[in-house]
């Protein structure tokens, strides 16, 4: 199988570090942001930021795939 590019893997590691491994840094109530305790705010923010990271990974992979064969463009 063709392996994912290093760039895509690095983009994928960002959410893992932010959401999972760094838990001791952000699992706290203060500072409260938008009325939410910091840990709730942080994880909700990463629901929006994770797709952004993965979209970057997708661009990298799609460019690579189009060198080999054209990616299909079936849409919703």
């Amino acid at each position: 199988m063709h392996r994912p590019s290093t760039g895509a893997i690095l983009f994928a590691l960002i959410p893992f570090v932010a959401i999972c491994f760094s838990v001791t840094l952000w699992d706290r109530i203060y500072p409260m942001v938008l009325g939410l305790p910091f840990n709730f705010f942080w994880l909700i923010a990463w629901l929006l930021l994770t797709p952004l990271c993965m979209w970057c990974a997708y661009r990298l992979e799609a460019t690579r795939a189009s060198d080999a064969h054209r990616p299909d463009s079936s849409g919703p």
């Binding site: 893997i9 999972c20 709730f40 909700i44």
Partner: peptide
């Protein structure tokens, strides 16, 4: 209480994993 946050963590991350596995 607080431990429920694990749900908010695995849901985006499982899709990060899926990105590399399901298309393959």
């Amino acid at each position: 209480g607080g431990p429920v946050l694990y749900i908010l963590a695995y849901q985006p991350l499982m899709n990060v994993v899926a990105f590399f596995i399901l298309p393959q």
